[in-house]
Design a protein around this nucleic acid. Structure first.
Lengths: 210, 210
DNA sequence: ACCTGAACACCGTTCAAGT
DNA sequence: ACCTGAACACCGTTCAAGT
């Protein structure tokens, strides 16, 4: 808040100190308030008090702006998953694997619009960013835990790699069904949705457990 | 093709005979060729050879146009599922339930952009259309089959309703992961994706079978 | 170095006027 | 009844010009 403006003047000039950051914050606000489609570079510029062309000094395209939002978002998602993993640090590998799913679901249901930004490829530049690598960190953890679970004889039958994809598709599907508005169809209101989703995950975990 | 134009004239006038249909076809072409975001009412009008305002005589908004596309799409999806169900007519309820999933996956992997139109609520008017009812037809079938499977002692433990949601979330998640470009992460190329997805579904079905 | 503000080629949507 | 074509208020993006 208190930076480069040399003296006590109104914040009316074109010095934000950190326009980049201000633009990202405005974009997040706009997503939260009016949805992903409502995010226009011009509106974000207006909210930040700069001219329509100014954001392009910091983000080459609208996609680049939203990709930056997605990178922030995936960091927070990873954080939530790590919290959940820590809380399960003393459990067996299968329950740690489950904890990843729980962390994912918690974050998605608490931050639906951020999940939308991460998961909707049309709106971000997944490859030309750090998103793939950040995603891979989580996936690698899942793989390791699944293999440990198999090695420890915790799993029933079936292919381990496919159990892993199934688990991923299950929680991803639950999250997408939520943001795609498919839960009302299933006679679940949104308040129960997270709890139900965790129960469903647990039932899946049970069904693959030895 | 041969209708209201009274005599042999160039099709240059504003009589398409069925402009509504022509607009829908153009929209589908555009989605197929350049993706959902590329669908603008103006472009669809241009492809059909009419003025920018003409489509609004048939579809009140861009959303209404895409909702009509979605209604067509869900009919084809239902058709594919029914085909799959017929092929499994002699099987037990659990395998018929599986057949719904297989039909869904087949259709999604063959028509990814149509699936995107159906599933992306932001772009269509789900409630103000017949989409919910058409969706309910399939869901009701799933519910009936699941209950029959339970009654016939075909299921292992767990809550039947939750197995049903899990199955739905699993195939929905696989479909969305596909159109969201998440399969490369899982070291699956797109050609193998359908086959793998069916194997994963089968593994899930196995895990809930008695 | 960073931002302004005009400009360009697009949008969705409306509506008087034409046939 | 159905379509045209101009108009309005928006877009994303570029770029000379200002500070």
């Amino acid at each position: 808040m208190t930076n480069k403006r040399s003296l006590s003047e109104e914040p009316r000039s074109y010095h934000h100190g950190d326009l980049r950051k201000a633009l990202l914050e405005a974009a997040v606000q706009l997503i939260e308030a009016r949805g992903l489609d409502a995010v226009s570079v011009r509106e974000v510029a207006k909210m930040t008090g700069v001219s329509p062309g100014a954001p392009f000094r910091h983000f080459a395209t609208r996609t680049a702006l939203l990709t930056a939002v997605a990178e922030e978002a995936i960091d927070r998602l990873t954080g939530e998953i790590n919290l959940s993993l820590q809380a399960a640090a003393d459990e067996n590998p299968l329950l740690q694997f489950r904890a990843i799913g729980v962390g994912f679901l918690r974050w998605v249901f608490a931050n639906p619009t951020h999940f939308q930004v991460i998961s909707t490829r049309a709106v971000i530049n997944f490859e030309g960013s750090t998103l793939r690598q950040r995603n891979d960190v989580i996936r690698t953890k899942m793989t390791v835990l699944m293999q440990q679970a198999a090695a420890a004889g915790l799993l029933r039958t079936g292919d381990v790699g496919r159990h892993q994809i199934a688990a991923r598709a299950l929680v991803y599907g639950l999250g997408r069904m939520y943001i795609d508005g498919q839960f009302p169809s299933w006679e679940l209101n949104e308040r129960e949705a997270l709890g139900e989703s965790i129960v469903i995950l647990d039932q899946f975990i049970s069904s693959i457990r030895a």
